[in-house]
């Protein structure tokens, strides 16, 4: 009887203990990289944000994100004639909240700019050319089509002309006076480099319905970027934030190893619009 009892106990133990495989996840190929997000626009100072990537076994929280911010790098921007070492400071409206900024060097359309980041014995470099900015031909404020929209709401749309031989794409950012930062209209994701001719885009506000209120003062930033930057921003807009999605290709970056990210030249036109 005792023998049978032991067999019974053995099977019950199997049932509850089982055999658990370890998820022995060793991310083969993981290398620490300098993550670069840099912009230089016409008539604007260069700005660069730097951080480190973290292995996936490291927990994601505000402490680890702040720890990954690089604050001791030497960042140099040059146009081939003038070279400037950027100065750094906290910028709490951005994420990651630390910026390297030029104080003298401003961007010019058609000019190429070289970026060099030196950190912890590593040097990463990149270059970008500011494309010629594109003017907005007309801005139209209209009553929205939605049935349930309040009488005080309006739609803002912009029309511009695309020359597809330039292989550029376009980004719309807008900021109402009360907003803390710019909000991007999701146009880039849908735009293709082969778009041509007149295009009209409905500019979205930060409101959930994307509409503007009568009396809003809106700063509209219309940005032209080249094909390298287009591919990068399109890639990071599609699916990478969906954790489950699998990537067919690794992202293409214009930063040299061991860096990763984008050094982007922007042809910018700014407009002030009052909604009436």
């Amino acid at each position: 009887m005792e023998k049978h009892y032991n067999i019974f106990i053995f099977f019950v133990m199997i049932l509850f203990v089982g055999c658990n495989p370890d998820l022995d996840y060793e991310p083969h190929g993981y290398e620490q990289k300098i993550i670069v997000e840099g912009y230089i626009a016409n008539n604007e100072y260069a700005k660069v944000y730097l951080s480190l990537n973290n292995p996936t076994w490291r927990k994601i929280d505000s402490v680890s994100i702040l720890k990954s911010v690089i604050r001791t790098a030497k960042v140099t921007v040059s146009d081939g004639e003038t070279t400037e070492v950027l100065t750094s400071s906290w910028e709490h409206t951005h994420f990651p909240p630390y910026i390297y900024k030029s104080t003298e060097l401003k961007g010019e359309e058609g000019k190429t700019y070289f970026l060099k980041v030196e950190y912890s014995g590593h040097t990463v470099t990149s270059q970008t050319t500011i494309p010629y900015s594109t003017p907005i031909e007309s801005l139209d404020i209209s009553i929205p089509q939605q049935d349930n929209a309040a009488d005080t709401l309006r739609t803002l749309s912009a029309t511009f002309n695309i020359d597809n031989s330039r292989h550029c794409s376009y980004r719309f950012f807008c900021k109402r006076i009360k907003d803390t930062g710019y909000y991007e209209t999701p146009f880039l994701f849908n735009s293709e480099l082969n778009l041509n001719g007149h295009q009209t885009v409905t500019v979205m506000s930060k409101n959930s319905n994307g509409l503007f209120a009568l009396g809003d003062t809106v700063m509209l930033r219309f940005v032209t970027i080249d094909s390298t930057s287009t591919q990068f921003f399109k890639d990071i807009a599609t699916g990478l934030t969906q954790i489950q999605s699998e990537r067919l290709n690794t992202l293409k970056s214009n930063i040299s190893e061991p860096g990763f990210g984008i050094w982007c030249g922007e042809g910018v036109r700014n407009y002030w619009v009052v909604i009436f």
Binding site: P27, Y30, K33, I35, L52, N53, I65, L240, I243, T250
Partner: peptide, 27 residues
């Protein structure tokens, strides 16, 4: 299968870096 190698912040988004395709092997 594919699994991310690292995470980082870029363009004010939390991003995942994937390595080579199908580089991860299940137990």
């Amino acid at each position: 299968m594919n699994l991310p190698l690292s995470w980082y912040v870029l363009g004010e988004k939390l991003m995942l870096e994937y390595g080579d395709y199908n580089a991860f092997e299940l137990p």
